[in-house]
Simulated scan of single mutants.
Amino acid sequence: MIRDDQDYMLWDTGLPAGLLGAKLDPNAVLAPTLAKDIPTQLAEIGVKPEQITRLGISHNHFDHVGRQSHFRRQRC
């Protein structure tokens, strides 16, 4: 997250919330799991999702855009 005065920009939005607590599959090529989602992590530092006014997405892979619909956005 980048802060400029009261303007917050989030860089990438992480894994989809559906992966919260997902079990690891030792036989899978990819077995992503998530202990905390982005809104929870933001809350831990005192930032509400509605305070994020801008998103920066590095690239369009599931592990970078998983929660983008959760945020109100402006193009950066």
Rank of each mutant, 00 (worst) to 15 (best):
M1V: 06
I2W: 06
Q6G: 08
D7Q: 11
M9P: 00
D12N: 15
T13N: 09
T13Y: 06
A17D: 05
A22L: 04
L24P: 02
L24H: 14
D25C: 08
P26W: 08
P26Y: 12
N27P: 01
N27K: 15
A28M: 03
L30R: 08
P32I: 04
T33F: 11
A35R: 07
A35S: 10
D37W: 01
T40D: 10
Q41E: 09
L42D: 10
L42N: 07
A43N: 10
A43W: 08
I45L: 14
I45E: 06
G46L: 07
G46N: 03
V47M: 13
P49K: 11
P49E: 13
Q51R: 09
Q51F: 06
T53C: 10
T53N: 12
T53P: 02
L55E: 09
L55G: 08
G56P: 00
H59C: 08
H59I: 06
N60E: 11
N60D: 15
H61S: 12
F62T: 11
D63Q: 01
H64Y: 15
V65W: 06
G66T: 01
G66W: 02
R67G: 05
R67Q: 14
R67T: 06
Q68T: 04
Q68L: 14
S69M: 03
S69V: 05
H70R: 03
H70Y: 14
F71G: 05
Q74S: 14
Q74P: 04
Q74W: 10
